[in-house]
Nucleic acid binder design. Sequence first.
DNA 1: CTGTTAGCGCCTTCAC
DNA 2: GTGAAGGCGCTAACAG
Lengths: 341, 341
Amino acid sequence: MATIYDVAKLAEVSPMTVSRVINQKGPISEATKLKVEQAIEALNYIPNKSAQSLVSKKTKILSLLITDISNPFFTKVARGAEDKALQLGYQVIFSNSDEDIEKESKYIQMLLESRVDGVLMAPSGDQSRKNVKKLIKSQIPFVLLDREIDGVDSDIVLGNSYEGTRNLIDHLVEQGHKKIALINGPTYISTARERKRAYIETLQFYNLPIDEALIFETDYKQQSETTIIDKLMVLPPEQKPTAIFAANNFIAVTMMKKLKERGVNVPNDIAFVCFDDFDPVMDYHPFFTVAAQPAYDFGYLGTQILIDKIEGNSSQTNRRIVLPPEIVIRESSLRHNKNPS
Amino acid sequence: MATIYDVAKLAEVSPMTVSRVINQKGPISEATKLKVEQAIEALNYIPNKSAQSLVSKKTKILSLLITDISNPFFTKVARGAEDKALQLGYQVIFSNSDEDIEKESKYIQMLLESRVDGVLMAPSGDQSRKNVKKLIKSQIPFVLLDREIDGVDSDIVLGNSYEGTRNLIDHLVEQGHKKIALINGPTYISTARERKRAYIETLQFYNLPIDEALIFETDYKQQSETTIIDKLMVLPPEQKPTAIFAANNFIAVTMMKKLKERGVNVPNDIAFVCFDDFDPVMDYHPFFTVAAQPAYDFGYLGTQILIDKIEGNSSQTNRRIVLPPEIVIRESSLRHNKNPS
DNA sequence: CTGTTAGCGCCTTCAC
DNA sequence: GTGAAGGCGCTAACAG
């Protein structure tokens, strides 16, 4: 692999001159510039970023640390992040923590070693505080995505979990539901806390009772607790919920599968709503009533803010961007009244 | 940010000794090792990968160059790649070419500059040959995913497009269909070529006519040609297809949307099948009959092969792994005979 | 078991 | 407009 010296020799100039033409800075005569470019071409010379980074202390690499790219929500976040990164000349390394603090910590260590210029992170929960502290200690800029960490103030792009939840419950109540089960994520994750708070406060607003037997906590992962449905189904008729609110899309899918196994029909036997949308398949064959978040924008805006920080175009105060979810009412929460199509 | 020299000074040893404990190689006495570790801790020292790379000529970074992470197919590929990479101590940079050779070329340049140790690539088409040549010229190991490039022999992991298509058509013919439209991807992409070949040969096998008016070519992207459905719908009854085969999931979604707009019911008015699956939402609310590919394995195995090549554990001959698709028959290709549920 | 020397490829600084 | 010297942080090769 050719180096700047090889090019210099061929072009009969100094390495410094070659460096100048590569980086297009400093004064160069057209003639020598041409010679150098020909030499670069002839030798198939490609600048070595490791060497550049060593000097410049910039890698032009961002780290995107999410919980699971398989979740359509994070897929869109990733797409948004990558688009903005490309625009601004950065590359992005992605990592899946799987909601596991150990895995997350391992990645934090790796990204510190890589000297990435900045980090976009959807923390696995409040326990991520220690990892964020590491970033701060190493002075590497970061932006949180989707989830806050209790007690840390930082730049962040997230959705309005409270509002989305309230609107979803509003809808359910309008449909006549009074007993609504909440199948939540872990409350050490800020979104789950907010969704629970909104659930409770909205029920209270409607003077509906809060029944602890209808509130569950599982995790946001693909395989969540399937016994919840069983517990719900054995409840006496006067306590059994007529609607379920799942706190994210993965929980929704797991619960729906279980309901189906149990022979429970949605929406006729029980209504169903959830947070987060699915992939574009829903565009033509909609089913779930959801609070859909602008996930692409989480990534896109988060990356914009991050790069602003990296390049020092940023204000000192932390930015906090809260994006509203869109309530999309579909079949899963609407009791069939006409002939089914 | 502390360097190896700072650590050396604090621990009262030479930088080389520090290097040895970091890399856990070479003989070290327990005593000095401890001293060094304490110094590392005290200074919050983290090895600089750029510097290591400059010396070792290894970055421990892989490039995953796909067309669009938003496609659930590639999402799974990415997940598989990342899982295997982590196992083996690599990080992965991901990029979306959007089926655009220009964008792909730009990324190839970037990854060459980054000196990634290897590349996993789903080429945008046969025109990607020039990019692959660049990789070869720079001697950087690569593995192709999902798509072959006409005229290039390489390690590759892909699906069996021919078999998947044949099985899908078999199914349609069994359902009594004789006029089946093909809405294909661009034939400069190997999968589209194979799917077309299988489509034609299978129809011939059944002594069914090949009607050019039923064969279309659009692209594999999210927004494909929507006039195709219009063209299909104005065909005279004796020519109008009773079934549609879409060559990938994005095409399927676009066509389904258009059919819906046009008031055409699937599967009652027309049957529908496609290549590639969607996200897990389908697990409980299945609709599309598909040839589902083991996308996760594409990424997982591809990464395994790539790292084998990088680390020289590889045989000289190129490996070619062809994974069979799974035909999943669902609602979209089955005419309703009972009361709809 | 530990240290010294030299160099990876590039760029900053300062001459000319 | 161009070049020489030195150093970024680390490690291979050799010495002791």
